[in-house]
Design a protein around this nucleic acid. Sequence first.
DNA 1: GAAAATCACTAGTACGTACTAGTTCGTGGG
DNA 2: CCCACGAACTAGTACGTACTAGTGATTTTC
Lengths: 331, 331
Amino acid sequence: MTTTMGRRTTAADVAREAGVSPATVGFVLNRTKGQTISEGTRARVLAAAQQLNYKPHQAARALRSGRNKIVLLVLPDWPLEHSLRTNLEVLTHALAAHGYALITFTPQPDSAATPLWAILEPAVVIGYEPFSLEQITDMKSLGIRNIIPMPGTSADQVSTDFASGPRLQTEYLLGLGHRRLGYAHPSDPRLKEFIKARLQLVNEVCAEAGGRPPIVREVQYQDDSGRAAAAAWQEAGVTAVISYNDETAADVIAGAVRSGIRVPEDLSVVGHDNSPLAARYMPSITSIALDMERLALYMAGLAMHLAEGHPLPDPPTVAASLVCRESAIAR
Amino acid sequence: MTTTMGRRTTAADVAREAGVSPATVGFVLNRTKGQTISEGTRARVLAAAQQLNYKPHQAARALRSGRNKIVLLVLPDWPLEHSLRTNLEVLTHALAAHGYALITFTPQPDSAATPLWAILEPAVVIGYEPFSLEQITDMKSLGIRNIIPMPGTSADQVSTDFASGPRLQTEYLLGLGHRRLGYAHPSDPRLKEFIKARLQLVNEVCAEAGGRPPIVREVQYQDDSGRAAAAAWQEAGVTAVISYNDETAADVIAGAVRSGIRVPEDLSVVGHDNSPLAARYMPSITSIALDMERLALYMAGLAMHLAEGHPLPDPPTVAASLVCRESAIAR
DNA sequence: GAAAATCACTAGTACGTACTAGTTCGTGGG
DNA sequence: CCCACGAACTAGTACGTACTAGTGATTTTC
């Protein structure tokens, strides 16, 4: 133990131990290209670093080099779906493989708290939603140059086309012989745009099949909106309901059953996202599974491309597939 | 706009603009005590900083002062309960109010990835579980001095007594007249110790009431263990089941109903954690709500106490309360 | 009225790294 | 034999901040 108990080991300590200059230590440890180091020296430096348990000081490194290994992912305020959380895990691993740390963060619109990027000053900031001009200005004044999405650059968007999910839901129910459909969505105002987009897709598929658009209802578990919706749908002759996500599907089923409508015998229900709830509910919920892996790898590649010129990855495709369970059957 | 478009604004720029020295800028902006600054100068510096949109460079600040405003919370590998996630939110806010950023992170035991503390070098690292000696050595070699839990210091633990939850579950069912109880828990091996502790408490309450210990069963939604458990309980005359959490309670209910056992008429079930699932399930699940606010405030206080000598907060108590729903009724 | 104390500042340095601009040495070409 | 050239290094600086050790003024004290 050569520990001086208190001060941390610096590159200068390693240099002294190895009998070389601090610069050489830097060259060896960073594998600086354009610099030739003899094999013996390299080994001595490496051994000294090992022995002293040298870890470069990140703040000093960041100050000098002007970059760090932090990627900040700004999450939207809306509740994250199961598939997006999965996406995060894959993304975290993909970045970790290159020494990057992914930090996630949800800005609180009401809070006056410092945004996380001001404290971390990350190499890259990724947002699921576009940033406001104010936010971009703020980041730039902090020296953050890599922002995704950033109009006018290769990083101008990450959001992908999730069109196939709603299409699959609709086509599946139509294929089962259902003609009169319902659409259920949560009431969270932050989801408004997403609901609109998905509903639009459902409408398109219905129209292509020559059917009528679904009867749309807002459903949540906190009140009896599920019961009311179920009654309204029954009145209108609806035999199948497409739900925005699995949680809403559960609320639809609960509302129906509590109104004496059997699921799936009287009413079929499909969810979206293939969350654990879908498998756990009773009846279990037929749902849409999204394969987010390519999207995650794309985002990781994009981030590292901006941070240090890694090659640009291929644009992603998100594959959606139907997971059949108990909550939907043929008419 | 005095933007030089490229280089970020430094304290020197502000100094030049305000016609003072860089040191004065530092004194004004950091409110350095022991330094007197005339009102006029202070105002000029503040105005200049404002006008140039000056933001101190965090890496430089961290390098110079040897501390930063990052608190790293190391999450356990086990799945987080709803109440702990709530805890995180409160903790985040409490720290944000003092300019600290809370970052969470789950170490992957298999992964060779750099642990997040090596990249962030946070001021404080908090773990829900004790750290290994190896981890502590690693952090110390990175210059991290504030580690919670850290044996032999005021920060030697954070985990609190969650005794009242299981006690409440048991007392409630006994109070409803149930005499023969079951206990259901998930199979995740990472939860083993927690299950053991909670079961121990349930056993104690049963013994105090002069009853027999519950019949313990492992239940999960992926297989038919729920059905098997329900049958076994029925055979043994069990009329009420205590569940480790709400997810397991749902799995118990599903298993029972699929076996033709009615819930709550034939079998009462109580969950733990008061998650959204408990409200959403059918029947809705009677559960235990934990008030994590004080724990969160305690953790925040502890972290800031270590980081910069804020006063030590009071030790926490976690209040548990019963939320009555449909899944449990009197015998 | 001189010494001491206080006020309101400034010059300058250290933090630990990455990297530029050398310097020294050995070797091969002419 | 001298010069050029590359290999293998080193000296030294910049990054932006926080803060110590001053330095003139001005005010207080006896």
